[in-house]
């Protein structure tokens, strides 16, 4: 019997550092990526703050894990979505966010940034299409 590939969605709604959710989510995504499932990661509400450029945590004595998001493509996470309304509500633009590159090892195709800005309707549809939603 063919192995069933499930569609996993990791839904992030919390800002980094204030609570442990963002870091826990990132760890679970990276660990889960070893299991060859169809994974997407979505950032809505304060979750969009996880991807801001230029984070520097030296002054608060916490690990800055924002550079790690740039490895998501290497961990075979091909779909990363950010909710446009959440960005705009916070006065942010796509330029404020980290870029996540992706290289397809089979075709050699390289994409500079796989982060996709989407509207709420599309986000809702993507939730419906997932088999499992992990909320953080």
């Amino acid at each position: 019997m063919a192995e069933v590939v499930k569609k996993f969605m990791y839904l992030n709604r919390k800002a980094p550092y204030g609570t442990i959710y963002a870091w826990e989510s990132l760890e679970v995504v990276l660990i889960g990526a070893a299991f060859d499932q169809d994974v997407c990661v979505m950032f809505i509400d304060d979750g969009v703050y996880q991807l801001t450029k230029g984070q520097d945590t030296k002054g608060i004595g916490m690990k800055n894990f924002s550079p790690t998001y740039r490895t998501l493509g290497d961990y075979d996470v091909r779909r990363i979505y950010v909710d446009r309304d959440s960005l705009e509500a916070r006065g942010l633009t796509p330029d404020d966010l980290i870029a996540v590159p992706f290289e397809d090892m089979e075709t050699g195709e390289e994409i500079d940034n796989i982060v996709e800005i989407i509207d709420s309707e599309r986000a809702g549809a993507l939730m419906n299409q997932s088999d499992v939603i992990f909320s953080f």
């Binding site: 839904l11 709604r13 959710y21 997932s130 088999d131 939603i133 953080f136």
Partner: peptide, 8 residues
């Protein structure tokens, strides 16, 4: 329901 989304 076939899945649950918890708005924490």
């Amino acid at each position: 329901c076939d899945k649950v989304q918890a708005w924490l």
